[in-house]
Amino acid sequence: MQSDMMMQNAQRLKPEFDDQRGQDLLWLCREISDLSTYLRIKQWWAQTHAGCAAQVADHGIVEVQDKEIWPTYMLATEAQGWIQSPAGRIRRLITEVTSLKTGLSSGIYVKHAMSRPDVMKPTR
């Protein structure tokens, strides 16, 4: 799941993954995703045809439209003042968001802006 999410986010933010390190990370994500797909298909065939492979539960990371998060984001003015992000920062943030997506404990919920993964806030 993390690898699939990483590849989806990389499609939107291609310049962040143009260097060798970014390309290596995406290659590894593709390999993991392919292996996961193979294992899920194999598991599905092993089961009776009554159901599909179990889905991984979403642990409360929600990607929202920017307009939904800016009005209540405490550091909105400072964040909107950033014009250029340091090299590698967005790639690191995407990695963190994907880790949170599968690793948060039950009952913890976080929103992040679609175009700005650095704009996060806890929710209820």
Results as ranks from 00 to 15, higher is better:
residue 54 A to P: 04
residue 57 A to D: 13
residue 83 I to Y: 06
residue 91 R to G: 01
residue 90 I to A: 05
residue 57 A to M: 08
residue 60 G to E: 11
residue 60 G to K: 09
residue 58 D to S: 03
residue 57 A to H: 06
residue 57 A to K: 08
residue 74 M to I: 13
residue 63 E to N: 14
residue 87 A to G: 01
residue 66 D to M: 03
residue 55 Q to L: 12
residue 61 I to C: 11
residue 80 Q to E: 14
residue 56 V to F: 14
residue 76 A to Y: 07
residue 71 P to L: 02
residue 56 V to Q: 15
residue 56 V to D: 07
residue 75 L to V: 03
residue 90 I to G: 05
residue 52 C to L: 09
residue 82 W to T: 02
residue 90 I to C: 11
residue 94 I to D: 12
residue 77 T to I: 04
residue 63 E to S: 05
residue 69 I to P: 02
residue 62 V to E: 14
residue 65 Q to H: 04
residue 75 L to M: 15
residue 65 Q to C: 04
residue 84 Q to G: 02
residue 67 K to D: 07
residue 56 V to C: 13
residue 86 P to R: 04
residue 83 I to G: 03
residue 85 S to K: 13
residue 73 Y to L: 05
residue 68 E to H: 11
residue 64 V to Q: 05
residue 55 Q to D: 08
residue 65 Q to E: 12
residue 61 I to E: 10
residue 75 L to C: 10
residue 65 Q to M: 05
residue 79 A to F: 08
residue 76 A to D: 03
residue 59 H to M: 08
residue 80 Q to A: 06
residue 84 Q to D: 14
residue 54 A to T: 04
residue 57 A to I: 03
residue 86 P to Q: 11
residue 65 Q to F: 12
residue 84 Q to F: 09
residue 89 R to C: 04
residue 72 T to V: 08
residue 58 D to E: 12
residue 61 I to Q: 05
residue 66 D to R: 01
residue 71 P to K: 04
residue 94 I to V: 06
residue 73 Y to A: 01
residue 82 W to D: 02
residue 78 E to Q: 09
residue 62 V to P: 03
residue 86 P to K: 04
residue 78 E to C: 00
residue 63 E to M: 11
residue 90 I to W: 07
residue 91 R to H: 07
residue 90 I to Y: 14
residue 66 D to Y: 09
residue 93 L to E: 15
residue 82 W to K: 13
residue 89 R to N: 00
residue 75 L to F: 15
residue 76 A to M: 07
residue 86 P to W: 09
residue 79 A to N: 10
residue 52 C to Q: 13
residue 73 Y to F: 08
